[in-house]
């Protein structure tokens, strides 16, 4: 409920056509990783705080807020088998109706899985809270 904190690196984002699906996410992660590799920039270190309210992304070094993604805007999360240190989620843009896939590089495969399972648990708690609120 208080939020779990993970230190990762931001790989980037791409637009996607569907809110969920393994093939969609896998292709999106491939595109993001290819773009990230092609760019000479160092990946930004970010801190993810995962709670039933959503995911708060801050810059690890400056602590500046990058984005506060409401749980109601997140449709999907995954740790892909081919890019196994990558955690990704799909969310509706805060500005319009478009769907975005955001990907993050974790230090280990286990961390990518832990972030994904934590977000999944946040989904479940958010559903419980939503049902209580009805």
């Amino acid at each position: 409920l208080e939020g779990m904190v993970f230190n990762v690196k931001y790989l980037g984002m791409t637009l996607v056509g569907q809110p969920k699906g393994e093939d969609m996410a896998s292709a999106a992660i491939r595109r993001i990783v290819a773009m990230a590799r092609a760019s000479a920039k160092k990946f930004r270190k970010v801190t993810l705080t995962v709670s039933p309210k959503g995911i708060i992304i801050t810059d690890t070094e400056t602590t500046d807020l990058i984005e506060n993604v409401s749980i109601y805007r997140i449709s999907y999360c995954t740790a892909d088998k081919t890019q196994d240190k990558v955690f990704a989620y799909v969310s509706q843009s805060q500005f319009n109706e478009t769907l975005e896939c955001h990907a993050f590089l974790c230090q280990k495969k286990k961390i990518a899985q832990a972030v994904t399972l934590t977000v999944a648990q946040a989904f479940k708690v958010a559903l419980d809270l939503w049902e209580i609120a009805q």
């Binding site: 999907y76 892909d80 088998k81 609120a133």
Partner: peptide
């Protein structure tokens, strides 16, 4: 060997006003 793990969000696009 690992499989992809992935989860759909059951509260996606729900709001507390529903």
């Amino acid at each position: 060997n690992t499989n992809t793990i992935h989860f759909d969000n059951p509260v996606y696009q729900k709001t507390t006003e529903d």
